[in-house]
Amino acid sequence: MAKLDPQEPVFSRLSYWLVIALSLCWLIPLFWVLGLSFKPNEELSYGLGTVFRAPYTLDNYSDLIRSSQLGRWILNSVVVSIIQTVLVLIICSIAGYGFARLEFPGRRALFVFVLIGLAIPRQAIIIPLHAMFVDLDLHNTYTGLILPHLGTPFGVFLMASYFRALPRELEEAAALDNASRWKIFLTIALPLSVPAQITLAIFTFLDAWNDYLWPLISATRPEMYTLTIGLAATQTNFDQSEGIGYLMAQAVFAGLPMLILYLIFQKYVLRAVAGAGGR
């Protein structure tokens, strides 16, 4: 990282202060929403400007906890995101290793074939995928929510390039000991690939957690909604909602766990995202 230069040029310092100013723009909406969530709904109907003065209340949060299906939706999101992440890690690590390290007939062609998949936009196959899952009777199930992401080649691509960059010597030594390919993979390559695994895990988890279009058309029973869909359903019509304060409490309640998780693991998250770029 660049050293902080005491003689830092004006230009650089200026840009730093500009970015600090910009970061305020990133913060203001968050505080605005937090503030609104503590306001009684009736008062907000006079105008959102009332956020700057008392009274404040916890009613929105207690209403939320007492009544809404938010808990169920969060559970659905957690289940889907975690299972999806675990499965993607397993499948992509194994396949990535296969493509990176093992020789087999047609490997090159197959890898190119898989890479082409990077260019297939998920949203462009959603209609046939929906029809396919109708035939398989998979809508409104966790399986139906998880499966479509397991065929995405990004993870294979990421893991393959990571395995390829690992030094071969360690594996060769083990190969001389007559260890099987599988054993070499499990005992040597896999532990070394933890940084890439973390990267892939974070990307997959975020992707699953934030997925919108697929759950929108697949999870159509309210109890199968993911958090994203459940919250979306409540905001299409501010007219019929239970008040802006209540909606904002929902937003905070739904967003906060992820933000807290992120703050706790920020070091890993940021390193992992940067790691994906290094590939």
């Binding site: 909406p29 968050l30 605005w32 929403v33 975020l206 957690w209 934030n210 919108y212 958090l227 994203t228 869909i229 919250l231 979306a232 905001q235 909606l247 904002m248 929902q250 937003a251 739904a254 967003g255 992820m258 933000l259 998780l261 992120y262 998250v269």
Partner: peptide, 10 residues
């Protein structure tokens, strides 16, 4: 890390 619906609510 926020989902699109939280972002649009905000």
């Amino acid at each position: 890390v926020l989902s699109v619906t939280v972002v649009t609510l905000i």
